[in-house]
Design a protein around this nucleic acid. Structure first.
Lengths: 217, 217
DNA sequence: GTGTTAACGGGACCGGAGTTCCGTTAACTG
DNA sequence: CAGTTAACGGAACTCCGGTCCCGTTAACAC
């Protein structure tokens, strides 16, 4: 009863089940992706997550509405892709020689990122998306895991120098630097300034020295 | 040219500009509000912020769709009202006698709240809403300001006892307890367990003792 | 170069969120 | 206990986000 595969052979390919953009990722496809991600970032910085619609993104990117829906489908999926794209352009870690200064540098970097109108808006949006969508949440976890892993070595070096207990978990220290900054961004109206960054670094440093972040047992 | 106020006097009142529910807040109006807030909480725990629509809330609450749109209008406004409602039912602070234990009690409370399926979902949703809507953001700030103010006294008492520097800012200490818990909830997949709460309390305590949260100068 | 077909793009289409209209119910006043 | 009218509720309507269809363009293979 099934119509044979040779019947109705059209120029339109049968669905391969795969996501569009994976078989011929060059040229036009790459240009479209770039334009859409840029437009999405712009729209996000203006309207925020709640009022972001794919049709408008398509318009801004001068790309067919259908294309955006076919390749990304949902706002959260687009955000996840945007975050993955951004993960590739992270500033390299600086090394100062002391743990406190390294942490301060990290805090300043986080602070700068969250304060930047464009990046800040993006992060807020992705966090919002992550609260209600698994795909976005996983992208966010991946992103922070990578960032934390990049900065962890400075804690390991400090442990070698004897600045903190030898069995200190480096990743916990790095997260302790970011936590108060994100918390302040989300739950208070107060602006993220240099003092807040300084405090975040000193707080994480004091806790690490006190042995709060030592591994279990 | 304006039609006089006596012309066309209908039974329907002219718009007073005020939000419905403020002039006759008793009886039916109160019942409607209660039913809608309950239904909104239920829907939120199920679908999350992104897929919450007011029509469904109205259906669950067995209330006219029009009523919900008239009184709240947007999802974020409804969330703000829901948060204000929740702010009234906070558990009272416990007093243990030492700062570290007080902070641990606070951390445990926050942890319990965020872990609870219903309250946790609500908080995630409100945070998401706050990232893109001023009304929700203000409600969130009010909420945390109240919570922080409730717990601040334990730091003040500790300062009197000499546990921490006298010019320690109590609110910063309390926020330092919550920050890592919220950060973990949002940016990692790791579950919020007792150990995380314990760490949050000890970290804030160590930093406070080290004088990180002293007021400017 | 030529051929295949992945990927794009315009336009018609559809469903449901949000609005408007107006009649009904019941909260407050005296 | 009436009278006034704030607030509710059903139903029709509008508008637009998201989908579908199908023709066009151009990436990759040879």
């Amino acid at each position: 009863m099934t119509s044979g595969p040779e019947s109705r052979r059209k120029t339109t390919a049968p669905d391969t089940g795969a996501v569009p953009g994976t078989v011929r990722p060059g040229g036009r496809t790459a240009r479209v992706r770039e334009a859409v991600l840029r437009a999405a970032g712009d729209a996000l910085a203006e309207h925020g997550f709640a009022h972001l619609d794919l049709a408008e993104v398509a318009r801004r990117a001068q790309v067919g509405k259908t294309t955006v829906y076919r390749r990304w489908g949902t706002v959260t999926a687009l955000l996840a892709d945007l975050l993955d794209d951004m993960a590739e352009q992270s500033e390299p870690r600086t090394e100062t020689g002391t743990l406190l200064d390294d942490l301060a540098a990290n805090a300043a970097l986080v602070c700068r990122t969250l304060t930047d109108p464009r990046q800040g808006a993006l992060f807020k949006a992705v966090i919002a998306a992550a609260t209600c969508d698994t795909t976005a949440a996983e992208a966010l976890h991946r992103f922070y895991a990578a960032r934390v892993a990049e900065w962890a070595p400075c804690v390991r070096q400090a442990a070698d120098r004897g600045e903190v207990p030898a069995d200190t978990d480096p990743e916990q220290v790095i997260r302790a630097v970011s936590a108060p900054l994100y918390y302040q961004l989300l739950t208070t109206g107060a602006p993220l300034d240099r003092a807040a960054a300084e405090r975040a670094a000193r707080s994480a440093y004091a806790a690490a020295c006190a042995g709060v972040f030592r591994r279990e047992q």
